[in-house]
């Protein structure tokens, strides 16, 4: 238990809360990589998922693609891209984007595809154009599932950004890798605790967002099977 108090000391030491290697800086880097990754992944996966979900064509392709991407080990991609493209920001971001795409893609696709055909039919019958069907009916109704996928992706990215420190980038994983190099176990512990707290906090925030943007009507519909 001694290590825990050492880790606590590390976390409460004012020296670790300032400067280029301080916790705020590392936290910022960690969140920055994650936001960048999520931005790219969202830009790719959401439109694709919406399109396939709306047209209800190519669902099998999406499932296959997501499954294939899911079985790729992120650490392997990270090291491979680094070797092929050299050190820098893009190789790890690319690997993380591939990690984030499957949950967003299948969440978006399955959310939209699961909107009741009768509801879509009703929307068209009322004179909605295809675009209006998508933006006024399918997306709002699928929103909880879409956001669930995004939330899941964000969690994975936040957790996995830890290992970009392995290829000399920043982020909270820096303390883990540096601590490992000098057998400073307390610093490693501090690192993973910070990541866990960040993940829990982010998940809580995203859960709140999910709740806020989900129409109460959908929650009620969910409670009544």
């Amino acid at each position: 238990m001694n290590l825990f108090s050492e880790a606590a000391q590390f976390l409460t030491d004012p020296a670790n809360w300032s400067g280029a290697t301080g916790i705020p800086q590392r936290l910022l880097e960690h969140v920055g990589y994650s936001v960048l990754t999520m931005g790219i992944a969202l830009a790719i996966a959401v439109p694709l998922g919406l399109w396939v979900g709306h047209t209800r064509r190519g669902g099998g392709m999406i499932v296959g693609l997501a499954g294939a991407l899911r079985s790729l080990p992120t650490l392997g991609l990270l090291t491979l891209f680094t070797l092929l493209m050299g050190l820098g920001l893009m190789p790890p971001i690319l690997a993380l984007v591939l990690l984030a795409i499957p949950p967003i893609l299948s969440g978006t696709y399955s959310g939209v595809a699961a909107v009741s055909p009768a509801l879509v039919d009703a929307a068209r019958s009322m004179g909605m154009t295809e675009g209006q069907v998508l933006t006024r009916v399918e997306i709002p109704v699928a929103l909880p599932v879409i956001l669930g996928g995004i939330r899941n992706a964000a969690l994975q990215v936040l957790a996995t950004v830890t290992i970009v420190a392995y290829i000399n980038l920043g982020g909270l994983g820096r303390y883990l890798i540096d601590g490992l190099a000098v057998r400073d176990y307390a610093r490693m512990l501090a690192s993973v605790v910070l990541v866990a707290v960040l993940a829990l906090a982010a998940d809580a925030v995203l859960a709140l967002v999910q709740r806020l943007v989900t129409s109460p009507g959908l929650r009620l519909a969910g409670d009544r099977p």
């Binding site: 099998g60 499932v63 997501a66 299948s106 399955s110 699961a114 669930g148 939330r151 519909a221």
Partner: peptide, 23 residues
């Protein structure tokens, strides 16, 4: 499955990307 999935996910506090094709 897809239909029930959507309704299940609506009240699930840990929803995620499932595939409605159910593999």
């Amino acid at each position: 499955g897809a239909a029930r999935h959507a309704s299940a996910s609506g009240r699930d506090d840990r929803t995620g990307g499932g595939d409605p094709e159910g593999r």
